[in-house]
């Protein structure tokens, strides 16, 4: 089974040269630590910057330079700053090639729920609904099951939706799966995880064809 960093590292293998990428809060943020050699991407933060760099050195933080998680960040050469409307114009207009975000539930048709749990304090969807409704390429980074051990890959989402039929790929601590019209298609297993383990942890329709290789790092 993978830890959070392992999930991020596997997702980083999906990055393609020249892509603009939006990383959500949590595991997705860690993807920036594992960009493969020879691949050049620019990170977009929806509060209004492209070319986001690493955290600043201690003492060099700038209150006027934060990411969408409100963390102090830096800019890399070639970066740019813009307002919120333009930021979402580039998201809605499909100029950002990849969105990576976390989820509480994903259905086997690609529906995603990640913003609201009935009965709990609702903090809001932030930019998640705009991001999932527009990006052509959405990868969900999450654990395969929740804290109670229940599957987060479902036939139907039970929580209020963030978007419908939008998730294309899921990387969990157990597996890499594509979302197809017929359901979750198993592509790879995490080290030490069997197809049987994945079947048991997946509530939605699961397609297993031939030998399923183990993830390579």
């Amino acid at each position: 089974m993978l830890d959070r960093n392992g999930i991020a590292q596997r997702i980083a293998q999906e990055l393609q040269n020249g892509w603009y990428v939006n990383l959500g809060i949590g595991i997705p943020t860690l993807v920036a630590n594992y960009i493969p050699q020879g691949i050049s991407v620019e990170f977009q933060s929806e509060n209004g910057l492209l070319g986001m760099g690493p955290f600043p050195y201690d003492g060099e933080e700038d209150a006027d330079l934060i990411n969408a998680g409100k963390q102090t960040v830096t800019m890399l050469p070639g970066g740019s700053i813009f307002d919120s409307a333009m930021s979402f114009a580039m998201i809605r207009g499909k100029h950002v090639q990849l969105t990576v975000l976390g989820a509480m539930e994903v259905s086997d048709q690609g529906d995603i729920a990640n913003w609201k749990i009935p009965g709990k304090m609702v903090k809001g969807m932030g930019g998640a609904m705009d991001l999932v409704a527009s990006a052509d390429n959405i990868i969900v980074a999450m654990s395969h099951t929740n804290r109670k051990g229940q599957s987060k890959l479902l036939r139907q989402c039970t929580l209020p939706l963030t978007g419908v039929k939008c998730v294309k790929k899921i990387v969990t601590n157990m597996a890499v799966l594509d979302v197809t019209p017929q359901g979750f298609k198993l592509l790879e297993r995490a080290p030490g995880v069997s197809v049987e383990d994945i079947k048991n942890a997946t509530e939605g329709r699961l397609i297993v064809e031939g030998d399923i290789p183990e993830m390579k790092f």
Partner: peptide, 24 residues
Amino acid sequence: PQGSLAERCRAGGAGIPAFFTPAG
């Protein structure tokens, strides 16, 4: 949704009464 919020403000200032968006 954040993008709709930004665009709804922009539309208000730009004299556009409403717009269609996929978000939500």
